[in-house]
Nucleic acid binder design. Sequence first.
DNA 1: ATACAAGTTAAAGTTAACTTTAAGTCAAGC
DNA 2: GCTTGACTTAAAGTTAACTTTAACTTGTAT
Lengths: 165, 165
Amino acid sequence: MTYTVGQAAAMLGVAPSTLRYYESQGLLPSLKRTDSGRRVFSDTDIEACRIIECLKQSGLSLTDVKRFMDMTVEGDASLADRLALFQARRESLTREIEDMQRVLNVLEFKCWYYGRAVEAGTEDVVRNIPLDQVPENLQDAVAFLRGIEGESEQREMEKAKARKA
Amino acid sequence: MTYTVGQAAAMLGVAPSTLRYYESQGLLPSLKRTDSGRRVFSDTDIEACRIIECLKQSGLSLTDVKRFMDMTVEGDASLADRLALFQARRESLTREIEDMQRVLNVLEFKCWYYGRAVEAGTEDVVRNIPLDQVPENLQDAVAFLRGIEGESEQREMEKAKARKA
DNA sequence: ATACAAGTTAAAGTTAACTTTAAGTCAAGC
DNA sequence: GCTTGACTTAAAGTTAACTTTAACTTGTAT
């Protein structure tokens, strides 16, 4: 099957202008045109768009995604590089999901915190609550908020490095 | 304890200018100053910064975070609203983590895909591979890439709505 | 007492990833 | 054949979240 830019956009849940922009940035090297110049999306192009979305979500910029697309054009010579890229993205996203879980835990603590506050009609009952009066599975979150992380120094240093880079 | 903007920034792993910017946007309503005008970060302010970071990561814009900070200034009258906000953020982040897991699964498939390609020295051995020759735990990822999702229509419609809003 | 690192402000600059605009071309249904 | 909606382009505009700059002040260490 083939699709117009509008159909492709609808399938992918993005705006047509986004797909035109992607092509202009060299992210869709296999995209064809009709004789009159209209874009023709094949299933391969649709799949490429889904890959672009995944790479983006894994933390890659479109500039970096372009580098990957350039590799695919090079053919089998770049296979090892492409494998390495996906392995790196896998590690990066895994770490990011771990971070998200930590954030989720904080949100869960805050739900508990405000749940108790609403019950009591005042925040006083939970503000500065001792750690051991917090449900066990939420204590990590409190420790994080209060800056009592065992691995704190390591993580802060990583963040500092990441900012410089 | 109290801290200067530089110390606070180091503790939080952000730039001092970021914290100044946050204050300028009304995100740190409890932040004090010395007589000479220098910012004085208390442990409460540091914790507020960590909450800001969590809310941001859960998908809130700084404008929305400000709305939350305005609620905290209102006191106990806004407790129910604050609970509702954190509950909504929890649901939102949970969904986001699920999306991330789906993306991770695609990356894992691509690692497998390029792993086999590198082994064989050519992509031909995996390009357009039949679904039943893919490891079972990666078949969902392939289905997603090829657009064979059971829940596809629902999710695309949600995305379309989200884009309009 | 003097240097100097770190603080202050307002205002302008940056960046990525789109989106919009304007002016025009094309294709499908009536 | 004509309308209409979808396509085309290049170029300008948008947005959020900072970051940088410039000119100045303050606190600390020698």
